[in-house]
Computed example of a mutant assay.
Amino acid sequence: MTDLTGKTALVTGSVQGIGLAIAKELAKAGARIAVHGLATEEEAAATCRHLEEVGAPEARFFAGDLRDPVAIDTMMSEIEGWGGADILVNNAGIQHTASLAEMPAEKWDAILAINLSAAFHTMQKSMPAMAERGYGRVINIASVHGLVASKEKAPYCAAKFGLVGLSRVAALEYANKGSKSAGGVTVNCICPGWTETAIIEPQIEARAAAHGGDRDAGIAELLSEKQPSQRTSDPSEIGALALWLCNPVAHNITGTSIPVDGGWTAQ
């Protein structure tokens, strides 16, 4: 069992989906949780209460527009004042599917900002302190689309490939910080395939429409093209992997990109 008592984790995009699932697993292990995401005041408060109910000694919501470096800097300063992040999970992301010729420029800019540049800014602000403490975990939620490409996802693939590269550079720069007993400072990507989250809902709806509104048929078609297991992942499974990466025993696992994709990238 991983014990995160005394540790603080920032999970971006943690009011729903994979981010919330990761926050729950870290909370169950005893970490304080810095919650972030698009949420009303009531939704943010409910998320914090839920995380405390499952085990977090404290959960607090921190607002920050990840398209804006100044807003990110303010958020990170507030979290530093709260004690700083021992664990950083860059999970927040957006998606828009369109051909390269038809992709709106503003969608390109927003996807690159949120899915890639925001991770650079949060890592730059938090990793020096991790090195000083001798323990730190950066877990960047990339995608199979950080390893292989698909049509109509130019900005998403560009951002996720970039996130993998950024993570490898940071892993090398911090590889010798800390110690085996303390856990060291590691940087890894988790690369989910088809996972049951809101971000894939538009693609499911499009496939279902082609099958006369049959959602199950739409999902089956979507998975049959890419994911050999023909099973989606549950966000909790991503959370379990993230938690394991936080264990000091994972001190030599750094610079990796771990697919959770039912064999997609093995093809």
Results as ranks from 00 to 15, higher is better:
A119K: 06
G55D: 02
A44I: 01
R49Q: 15
V89Y: 12
E53I: 00
T74H: 12
E52D: 03
P128H: 07
E42Y: 03
G134I: 09
M76H: 01
E43L: 01
E132H: 03
M127G: 09
I139Y: 14
C48D: 07
V15I: 14
A71F: 04
A56Q: 10
D68R: 04
I114W: 07
C48Y: 07
M76A: 11
H96K: 12
Y135G: 05
V35D: 00
N115E: 09
Q16P: 00
H36T: 10
A101F: 14
Q124D: 11
A98M: 02
D73W: 04
R67V: 03
K125P: 02
I33A: 08
I114P: 08
P128F: 15
L51E: 06
T47H: 04
I111A: 11
G37N: 00
G83A: 03
D65Q: 11
K125Y: 01
E42P: 01
A46H: 12
L88T: 07
V70I: 13
K28E: 15
G136I: 03
E41H: 08
H50D: 14
K24S: 12
P57I: 02
G134V: 10
A29V: 04
E78C: 11
E53M: 11
E80H: 07
A118R: 00
E80S: 13
H36R: 00
G64H: 00
K28F: 01
F62D: 02
I87N: 08
E80I: 00
H121F: 14
D86E: 06
S14N: 08
A31T: 01
E41C: 02
E102K: 13
Q95R: 15
C48T: 09
L112Q: 15
P69T: 10
P69G: 03
W82V: 09
I33P: 02
S99K: 09
R49W: 03
V54A: 06
G136V: 10
E102I: 07
A85D: 05
A45T: 10
I111F: 04
V89Q: 11
D73K: 12
A131F: 09
A44M: 04
R49F: 04
R60K: 14
M130A: 10
G13N: 03
A29Y: 10
L26W: 08
T97M: 13
A131G: 13
A129L: 05
E42A: 12
V35R: 08
G37T: 14
A98T: 12
M75E: 01
F62M: 04
G84R: 04
N91R: 06
G17W: 05
G37F: 05
W82Y: 14
Q16A: 14
M130P: 11
E25R: 15
S117E: 13
A118S: 15
E41Q: 10
N91G: 07
I22M: 11
A71E: 12
A45N: 04
I114T: 02
M130E: 12
A63C: 05
S99D: 11
D73A: 15
D109T: 08
G13H: 03
E53F: 03
L51A: 09
R137I: 01
